[in-house]
Design a protein around this nucleic acid. Structure first.
Lengths: 151, 151
DNA sequence: GCTTTACCTCAAGTATGCTTGAGGTTTTAT
DNA sequence: ATAAAACCTCAAGCATACTTGAGGTAAAGC
């Protein structure tokens, strides 16, 4: 397993190439760069050039977004990647593991919600005051004895 | 002014009461009303009054939002509820069942994503071009033979 | 009666995540 | 050599989901 996947020309990418390969708009890449999610350097003619790593970064960004993670949080997470060198397999693994936790968390919350909803389908939500859909996070700010949040 | 701690009577609710019991801000309720998510009528003094059903509606809205459904879609879904009368248990059940489908769908998508990610943790995302995280929805727009979306 | 609290409307502001457009430069293809 | 395509910057615009503020009315409590 000697030579890496250097089979083709492993050159730097222009913004248009990254756009084509990632499916993102050029404007989106500019935007991500302005937010520090990706980085580039410039040619003498002031055009952006990207390391091929950017494609993985962008893939990670898209995955994270699909799970509902806001860009600011993604940006935070991406900081585990080295700024000065190309990320290693280990670097990517760390990041992947982190997303997995996020995902697990999100999935378990939604599953809980679904199960609660199942209970409510049975009860027809007739008695929401004892319905599990009453999220404990959703404060009802009850004021008196006997005050009820729902119905 | 209606008492906010009138816990025993099944009377109509002022916007403040709904806010307290639902945990939403008054401004949010105004906003929801402007979007047609909830309805009210007015007192002679032009103040809003809500049927107690609004609390269930709001609960449903919050649940849907937690699953990532946008307000416009929630609004659509709420149209299965009768405008002229209080929803019956059957009406609520129909709505609940619908949310359950949405949830199931969302959960399965996230689960798929997590499983894909598991594979990628193993491979360290070294070869994203064959990584399952390459979402089929994310067009790569390849242009030539041998063009590669990643790496 | 008087004060405080709740309510009203409407406009504008905030945050996120981008897109669009204007005006101009660089690269690439013929 | 030119013309088209791609790129650049910066400002403004858009959609979603609300919040905040100004200016004024209504209702509740004492």
């Amino acid at each position: 397993m000697p030579s890496k996947t250097n089979s083709g020309l492993a050159k730097d990418l222009s913004v248009g190439e990254v756009a084509d390969r990632s499916g993102l708009a050029v404007s989106t890449l500019h935007f991500y760069e302005s937010k520090g999610l990706i980085t580039s350097w410039r040619t003498t003619g002031n055009q952006r050039r990207y390391s091929r790593d950017v494609l993985r970064r962008v893939a990670i960004i898209k995955v994270a977004q699909r799970t509902g993670v806001p860009l600011a949080a993604i940006s935070e997470a991406l900081k585990v990647l080295p700024a000065d060198r190309s990320p290693t397999a280990q670097d990517w693994r760390k990041l992947s593991a982190r997303w997995k936790e996020e995902l697990d968390d999100r999935i378990s919350k939604l599953t809980q919600l679904r199960d609660d909803l199942n209970g409510c389908i049975g009860c027809g939500c007739l008695s929401l005051k004892q319905c599990p859909l009453r999220n404990p996070d959703d404060e009802a700010h009850l004021h008196g004895p006997g005050a009820r949040a729902f119905d």
